[in-house]
Amino acid sequence: MSEREITFSEAIREALAEELRRDPRVFIIGEDVAEAGTPFKVLSGLVDEFGKERIIDSPISEPGFTGVGVGAAMTGMRPVVDIMFGDFLTLSMDQIVNQAAKVHYMSGGKLKAPIVFRTTMGATRRSAAQHSQSLQAWVSHVPGLKVVMPSTPYDAKGLLKTAIRDENPVVFIEDKLMYKMKGIVPAEEYLIPFGVADVKRKGDDITLVATSSMVQVALGAAEKLKEIGISAEVIDPRTTWPLDKQAMIDSAKKTSRVIVIDEGYEQYGVTAELASVIADGAFYYLDAPVKRMGAMNVPIPFSPVLEDLTVPTEETVFQMAKSLCQRS
């Protein structure tokens, strides 16, 4: 396999371009997706190759274009709906939750909605309370949806191609701060299956289960932990649904200590579900309660001094891990 280093956003764009080339049913719809290539420039150039018929600029109407996507998916197309900021999922929720997620079940399996909702997450961009949330818990809560949270360019590309080929509605959540991050991505085509966690770093003393933006935070913390003699394993579930429960449980059994880290609000968050799965599956092996670290339970503030306090960092994860391992 020939390998290259490309950015996270290039990986996303490649996945979309390959799938648009492969399958004429695939199209993209959303705000400023064509010539503008979105504010993040992730889609730059796609309109040149695929035209405005397949890279469709929509009005600023999240429920409207999300619903249009669902209807197109139900009638033979494969839409990729671009919801610019994850915060705007709230506007599209009826179409995602009451329509797309339920149509297969409600129709007794006769209808389906193969559609990808691409959206973003993540704070510390100084974008304040309505452009910074990580709402993966909202969609992970709903049966009928699949939820993907890639943490590397490699995962982003392979998982997005799988998402587009999936027969079900998939919410694909990208960390905005990761778009410029580089990583090794093969030139050859590959797919990554859903529901298969990835061990991002092997270790023996403590397990750090981390999603999306928090994977790099966990890896940074693991490096610091190594300096004080603690060997941390970093597990990335990659999809919050379907969820690879066994990978997390197996790691917990091995290390006996676990911290779960996700950038969504801590209250009723993804961390709660993951911690529950681990506590249930590895109860007799645990030497400490499973700890959860998420975004502080406050609307995300604008002032950098305040905003930086709201999300887990390498340092806070390091401190939590150190105390769990009873090192002072």
Binding site: P63, G64, T66, G67, V68, G69, V70, G71, A72, A73, M74, T75, G76, M77, P79, D94, Q95, N98, Q99, V103, M106, S107, L111
Partner: peptide
Amino acid sequence: NLGANAIVGGSMGIATGAALSA
């Protein structure tokens, strides 16, 4: 028939999307 809908107005997007698809 793409389905009845218990959300009032909930199928307006679906019908419009079916037309886009057609």
